[in-house]
């Protein structure tokens, strides 16, 4: 018993060390979204291409959808763009854009120059939908299922590795759910 008490500080120290060591590999930027499991908030905004055309949450059609938050002021978005084009080409998911706090002119120019992966882009100049979605930067990507429920929020750049590990398993799961029902 006495020996155990003597060893106790060592054990506590090791346990604390283990916890702190694990902390080194956590990403503090990775915030859990408050919206996972909730419906996409409703909105009434114009599309990027046409100021006269308004869209709402119901216009995002498709069994599995991505809503990608982007802007011309965001350098990482440019880096992410080619991969989004690839995702859109594969036709497995419908990719929608949320042009976040941007100018219409440069944003349209960007899509003309680099290609347009989006079914359409919502033009959110004031960032109102961004606020309702809890967006705090760009790029961010939401996965939305056929019922319009947000299943995942990913903050950061999507590349092949991220797509394989973070997105594909969830997309397969959603597809399986929809076949089951």
């Amino acid at each position: 018993m006495n020996k155990l008490i003597r060893l106790l500080p060592l054990i506590v120290c090791l346990a604390l060390g283990g916890v702190l060591y694990q902390g080194l590999f956590l990403n503090p930027q990775e915030l859990p979204s408050a919206l996972v499991g909730k419906k996409l908030p409703d909105f009434e905004l114009s599309t990027l291409k046409n100021a006269g055309e308004t869209v709402n949450a119901g216009d995002l059609k498709g069994k599995v959808k991505l809503l990608n938050v982007w802007a011309t002021w965001c350098p990482s978005c440019r880096y992410e763009h080619p991969y989004l084009l690839e995702i859109a080409k594969s036709d497995r998911v419908a990719v929608f854009g949320l042009n976040y706090k941007d100018e219409r002119g440069p944003a349209n120019q960007w899509l003309q120059q680099l290609g347009d992966p989006y079914v359409f882009s919502i033009f959110d100049q004031q960032g109102t939908l961004g606020l309702d979605l809890g967006v705090y930067g760009a790029p961010e990507t939401f996965v939305i299922d056929g019922e319009g429920v947000i299943r995942k929020r990913f903050a950061g750049v999507i590349d092949a590795r991220v797509w394989q590990s973070e997105f594909l398993p969830l997309i397969e799961q959603i597809e399986a759910e929809q076949q089951g029902s």
């Binding site: 859990p32 979204s33 408050a34 809890g134």
Partner: peptide, 8 residues
């Protein structure tokens, strides 16, 4: 704020 950005 919590509804949008979480307890964080």
């Amino acid at each position: 704020m919590v509804d949008r950005y979480g307890e964080f």
